[in-house]
Each structure stands twice: as C-alpha cells, then as structure tokens.
Amino acid sequence: MAMLEIVDFGKRFTIHHLGKTMPAIQNINLSLEAGEFIGIVGKSGSGKSTILKSIYRTYLPDEGKIMYDSERFGETDLAQISERQMLYLRKYEIGYVSQFLSVMPRTTCRQLVTNALLEMGESEAVALKEAEKALAHFELDPKLWDSYPNTFSGGEKLRLNIAMATVKKPRLLLLDEPTASLDQQSKIKVREIIEKLKKQGTTLVGIFHDIEFMDGLCDKVYDMQTRQLTITKEVVIHES
C-alpha cells in the first residue's frame, strides 16, 4: 500500500456557544508513496492545516479514512486508531513541526533536543551527541545551546523546533508552515535538511507559505481549491 492514503476525508467543527456546526474540509482524497514529498497549497482558511492536524490526531477526524502504513502496526486507519497507539506513532514514527514552539519551561536548548531522543529510549551519551549534531546542522550558535528558548528570535525558535522533530528521524514528517517567518538564509537551511530527509527515505507532507520554496522539492502538489493532486513537473499552482 501507499505510505499514506487519505480517502473521502472530512472534518467538521461544532461550536457550542454559537449553536453551529461548521464544515472545515470535505472530500479530501490523496495518497503518497514512501519517500515522496507532497506539498499542500491553498488560501488561508482552506483547511491545509486541518489535514495535517487530523493526520496527527490533534483534530478528531469525522469522515473517511486516513490509512497509514505503520512499521509497528501495519496498515492502520489513523482516524480510528487508539490513543495509546497514536502516542506510540508520535514517539517513533510520525513527526510534526509547526511554526510555534511549545516546550518545557526553563529547559535548555541542548536538553530539549536531547530529551526528544531520551524519550525514545536512546542512551544519554548517544542522545547528547545526536542532539549537538542536529543543533550544529541548523546553525544554532553553540553559545545558545545552554540558554532557554524563551529569549530566542523567531528564526532560532523555529530551527530548534525542526531540530527537535527531525532528530528522531520519523518515517512520516508533517510540516505545518515551518518556514513562515524565516529569512532567506534560514529557509535554505530548512530546505537542505528536507532534501537530506528525503534522501534518507522520509515521507513528507508539507504546507509552505511561499510557493518558490516548494519548487523542485515536492514530488506532488495538492491544491485545496481544485482538490487535484498533480505531479510537480506539470503543476500549475493557482494564484491566491
């Protein structure tokens, strides 16, 4: 099977104080093979993040299936899987990066990345070494490694965020506008790490604010407006 296959997927939000149910997205169908990178494009409010958050189960899916080919559980519907299984997948198989950093207070940058690996059961020594490698790769100044991220700039926070997710080497990585507020230099760094992850066989689903960033990086593009999945070489992205 494909690594990820979303079938007739839909999500509604019931807002009790308004007495309303609002459909966020409906009829989403897309699939990607292992090692592919799919980019999702569309206007803001079109439901791009809703798809990612539903895959990660931050949102409870309402309709359809999200079939994922898990290393541990085999073919699994992420819309139906138990909470404990989802926690396992989050720990070992599926990563999520957003543009916001939410971490334990007063924990150093170095410790945060190390903790991500310790939670997977890595030894202290390996975790520390891998963490430092990741921080160095994202060009976080070693002077910052023992300070707390609260005082970091937006770009530094984001690079730390990506370091924390990628250091665990997830099979499926969800990128929710991780480059939204980055300068060109940092974007190039992020692009490099994505290319590297692709080479290692990581499957990626990403939302990117700027279309140029995705150019030449994605294998497929899913357009929220047309509900069409296209191979990038022949893609015509709707201006929005």
Partner: peptide, 18 residues
C-alpha cells in the same frame, strides 16, 4: 477524554470548549 493536544485544540464538549 482524549490526547491532551486534541482535548485542548479540538474540544468536543461544550464545557471543555468554554
């Protein structure tokens, strides 16, 4: 009841939403 981020970001019950 649910995964913590799900309860906080996609609360289902009226009281949890409040």
């Amino acid at each position: 009841e649910g995964l913590t981020d799900q309860v906080l970001e996609d609360p289902q019950h009226e009281y949890t939403q409040q």
